[in-house]
Design a protein around this nucleic acid. Structure first.
Lengths: 224, 224
DNA sequence: AGAATATTTTAGGCTCTCCTAAATCCTATC
DNA sequence: GATAGGATTTAGGAGAGCCTAAAATATTCT
């Protein structure tokens, strides 16, 4: 069975894909941190994945996905995001709790099921957090996104996605009115990594968010 | 983690539950056959399940579920059957292919998801093969069912369920018009375990089925 | 450069779930 | 009531995936 990809292996591939999007090969430590396991355990799995031709690893340097590995990662990501979208739209799940359920289902659902789910909700191209859903063929929009940290006071933008799956955080974001799709104006930015002041709705008080949260809010600038 | 039930353990409990319905404690060999693994492997798992208090095992005698084990088995069976029903009704799965998908999902789906699925399709009490769905509380109809083998020529009955999940077999059963709910009359029974002749629809030719298939067809007699 | 620090890998262990081969126990038949 | 044949269990082993502790390598700082 050296060709079959186990559930943990799928998680590694997803993690490596995400980290690698930053440009650099994925460091062992970063993979370990993202998966919440010991770095030593990652070394072991890296060997197995490399043996399967899913990744390319240079000792002490880092890890990159091969074309095969990338495809496998995107398949898992598609499953995950389609399932999230389906749970939210077809079964009434709140957006802050779809992630956890999808995290388990993505390893058990067949491609057939995922396709049926996608069809049932009209072939969505984003998940409930605004992240793009890869196509069956493995194409995704990989345009690098800006976050609220990249904008200056006075600029306007639209929230595209929230780069975190923590339920509490998502609930907080929703409470502030910052769900994907929302238009926002940067009212003010305090210096020294201070809070950012946003106008979410005209004629309402601005809301303040810290730089950590701001860095998780993917946005597109809106030409004025 | 001695209290958490792994996916393989859930499969053992389901198997034991099914076998035990025959009245006798489940034999190691029968469990092995049903799960498609070596008998020696079953001995090992039996020890673990007994340690967890899920089963009672008497060496060389057999295995029975404890109350806790029974509850766990029924929870898994509920998951499985709700998922089957949901796949068929909400996602258009053909009845012959829901089993395989449900077999994997049942170990990954949360109770929350299963309940939402059940609600979405109107809290069904049977799955696509006619098998009863246990309630959230773990109650099931365990009335012993008769099969076509228990009836004589001339008797009429209604197909309740098909006790097999093989896709080809299910397709064949459907082709004969013998889906659960169908009314059937025994036209003739050849002796010496010969074929059984059934009238499925009035004014149509009788169909013949062998004793193996007949033994899988659960029915209730209809008072004439 | 050389030492201190951080990262990564190796070594050795553990659990789970499966395997085959060999013992052990039960039962049914002669 | 001994024994053959079948069922069951034990013994020993394998691979996945995790762990901690220690060794190896890379990087950073003085």
């Amino acid at each position: 069975m050296s060709d079959s990809i186990t559930a943990p292996a799928e998680d590694y591939l997803k993690a490596i894909y995400d980290i690698e999007r930053g440009g650099e090969p994925a460091a062992t430590n970063d993979i370990a941190a993202r998966l919440g396991i010991a770095a030593a355990s990652v070394s072991g799995m890296i060997r197995r994945l490399a043996d399967q031709g899913l990744i390319k690893h240079e000792r002490y340097k880092g890890t990159r996905l091969t074309a095969t590995g990338r495809k496998a990662a995107l398949r898992t990501i598609r499953r995950h995001r389609v399932i999230e979208a389906y749970l939210a739209r077809a079964l009434g799940y709140p957006w802050d709790s779809v992630h956890e359920e999808a995290e388990r289902l993505e390893h058990a659902a067949s491609d057939e099921l995922v396709d049926r789910m996608a069809r049932a909700i009209g072939e969505p191209h984003i998940d409930p957090h605004g992240a793009p859903i890869p196509t069956r063929e493995g194409d995704v929009d990989e345009t690098p996104l800006r976050t609220l940290l990249d904008l200056k006071a006075g600029q306007r933008c639209r929230v595209v996605s929230v780069a975190d799956e923590d339920a509490d955080l998502l609930r907080y974001v929703a409470k502030l009115g910052l769900r994907p799709g929302t238009e926002v104006e940067i009212v003010d930015r305090a210096p020294f990594d201070g809070p950012i002041s946003l106008r979410v709705r005209p004629n309402e008080a601005a809301v303040q968010i810290g730089p950590v949260l701001a860095g998780l809010m993917h946005v597109t600038a809106i030409a004025d």
